[in-house]
């Protein structure tokens, strides 16, 4: 690793919350997401269903993982545990964990997973996480932007000078769903003293659906 001779990387360990998460993702320049025709058709189906009050296209309503990058915009705290070989992200949302392995390469043919397979590196003081190996059962955002199994995600996180914020950019590269890679922005704020409580999505769902049938 090129970073071996550098000063220690910034310590991101702690609890964070997303700031002002958007309902629908847009590229940084404010343009519309560059959907391919087939992905646009699927997106429009999602929008139409949501307008009818039918969110059955959204696995999150059944406690399935939101996938990425949507999980990165879920408005609940998460915890980073930074260790020399692995950076752990543990989300309050249904206790979902992510592991980004430092100093490793993405496998050529990663198995499709809900949260993908992630490797990490330090680019100066920026943490860069590359992920692949996603199933196509999740959405990019709450609005219903689709993606395919070809999705590759690059996350770049940089600690603000005062150490209280993380500024992030996520690049979505999915040639089956988008005509070009596009980048979104996110910001996180430290939550000192906040301890993530145990959360079981099915428990919350059963409280709102007393019959227990989904």
């Amino acid at each position: 690793m090129a970073g071996a001779a550098r000063a220690a990387p910034p310590d991101l360990t702690g609890v964070w919350s997303v700031v002002d998460p958007p309902h629908a993702l847009r590229p940084i320049d404010g343009s519309a997401p560059p959907l391919t025709p087939s992905a646009r058709a699927l997106y429009e189906q999602h929008l139409a269903a949501a307008a009818r009050g039918d969110r059955s296209f959204d696995g999150m309503t059944r406690c399935l993982p939101p996938g990425l990058p949507r999980l990165l915009f879920v408005n609940q705290p998460f915890e980073i545990l930074e260790r020399p070989k692995v950076i752990y992200f543990i989300y309050q949302l249904n206790r979902l964990p992510r592991r980004a392995y430092l100093g490793e390469q993405l496998p050529d043919d990663a198995d499709p997973l809900w949260l993908g397979y992630s490797v990490a590196r330090w680019d100066g003081d920026t943490l860069v996480i590359d992920s692949a190996g996603f199933n196509d059962l999740t959405l990019l955002d709450d609005a219903g932007l689709p993606h395919s199994e070809a999705l590759r995600l690059t996350e770049r996180y940089r600690l603000s000078r005062d150490g209280r914020h993380l500024d992030a950019r996520f690049t979505i590269d999915d040639p089956k769903s988008y005509t070009r890679p596009w980048t979104v922005r996110a910001r996180y704020v430290r939550r000192p003293g906040y301890e993530i409580p145990e959360e079981f999505c099915m428990d919350a769902l059963r409280r709102t659906h007393p019959a227990g049938h989904l």
Binding site: T13, L81, E82, R83, V86, Y88, I90, R95, L96, P97, E195, I196, E198
Partner: peptide, 20 residues
């Protein structure tokens, strides 16, 4: 098992249960 200052965390594969 992950050890960070003031904490030992158990990350279980099964149902991704987390013990802090």
């Amino acid at each position: 098992i992950v050890q960070t200052p003031g904490r030992i965390t158990f990350l279980h594969e099964v149902a991704h249960e987390v013990r802090r």
